[in-house]
């Protein structure tokens, strides 16, 4: 869908991004991960030409983006900036309608679309349509920012630390909501983050960057279990496997089996906490219940071999 070929951005003698080769697959969420100053934002902004590269190319569906007018290119790509950047003088509905308006879509249709999107990001249209950005909480504003980026139904979405300004609780909620949205809409998403947990939780693939260069590109499992370098290992940390478990539901690991006599956990509990309970209770298996009914047993060995299995489990769930 999007291909970076030898992409480079040089400021004077220093490289913000250097010889970056990446391919973002259609319908996948790719996290651009890395320490502060490694060139994530620069990379993202070179994709919609808010920053012009000093070398290399960006191909969108095989077409060099340099052949497009920057405005045309940008109207076809959703963009969520870190600071949200809602227009303070416009209400929520007008903010969300920005790109459809720029594209000259009929007002009636846009109005319907706005309500649909507010619903999608979990804001009741009747209540929020007419509010000004100043009347929103940080989390609500972020949601409006995401709705605004989705308004013209762009196939590609660029997000620069979209959940950065939130407290952990609100961030978890919005991440979950966004993951659902992404699964449903199948957008090609490139999300900048320096939060490893966020990347492990949301991303199909992670592009880990270091000092302007690509350190590793692969699935979360690749990075955790097959780190390409010491930098990757160190950046993810010793508890990377635990972090990954923190993003998964205990219920996703459960297999049908006899739960009698085992400590019980809710299916919605995250797998890392489930592991903690195993350690505390001195048990290598837990009974998993959903809405009070037993759905199966979660074993220590399930968590150990999670890497290979999670994906198949998830695929089963979605089909």
């Amino acid at each position: 869908m999007i291909e970076l070929q030898g992409l480079e951005k040089r400021y004077g003698n220093s490289f913000a991004v250097r010889d970056l080769n990446l391919e973002f697959a259609e319908g996948e969420l790719t996290a651009l991960l890395g320490p502060s100053g490694c060139g994530k934002t620069t990379t993202l902004r070179m994709i919609n030409r808010l920053i012009e590269p000093t070398g290399g190319r960006v191909l969108l569906r095989g077409q060099d983006t340099q052949t497009l007018k920057p405005e045309t290119l940008r109207r076809g790509i959703g963009y969520v900036i870190q600071q949200i950047g809602l227009f303070p003088h416009l209400n929520v509905a007008q903010n969300v309608a920005t790109v459809p308006d720029l594209l000259g879509r009929p007002a009636r249709e846009t109005e319907r679309r706005v309500d649909e999107l507010l619903d999608l990001v979990g804001l009741s249209p009747a209540e929020y349509r007419h509010k000004k950005p100043a009347e929103l909480s940080g989390g609500q504003a972020q949601r409006v920012g995401v709705a605004r980026a989705l308004a013209a139904d762009p196939p590609v979405l660029l997000m620069d630390e979209p959940f950065g300004a939130l407290d952990p609780l609100a961030r978890d909620k919005l991440q979950d909501a966004f993951r659902d949205i992404q699964r449903r809409l199948k957008k090609t998403v490139i999300m900048v983050t320096h939060d490893i947990d966020e990347a492990l939780r949301l991303a199909d693939r992670i592009a880990l960057m270091n000092a302007g260069e690509l350190a590793q590109f692969g699935t979360p499992d690749d990075l955790i279990h097959r780190p390409a370098s010491d930098f990757v290992r160190q950046f993810l940390g010793e508890d990377a496997a635990l972090r990954q478990l923190a993003g998964r539901r205990a219920g996703d690991f459960a297999h049908p089996s006899d739960p009698s006599g085992l400590p019980t956990v809710e299916a919605d509990l995250n797998a890392r906490s489930a592991l903690g309970i195993m350690l505390r209770e001195g048990s290598d298996a837990l009974a998993v219940t959903e809405a009070g009914r037993p759905i199966g047993v979660l074993r220590w060995s399930d968590l150990q071999t999670s890497a290979a299995q999670i994906e198949t489990v998830m695929r089963d769930k979605t089909t």
């Binding site: 808010l50 940008r74 600071q83 303070p88 003088h89 790109v99 720029l102």
Partner: peptide
Amino acid sequence: VDASALDAARGMGMTGRQRLVRVELPL
């Protein structure tokens, strides 16, 4: 004028003129 609002306007594909009329002057 809020720099992030302007950045968002640019990122959404507004031309310089549209940014002026739709964002900068009203603000």
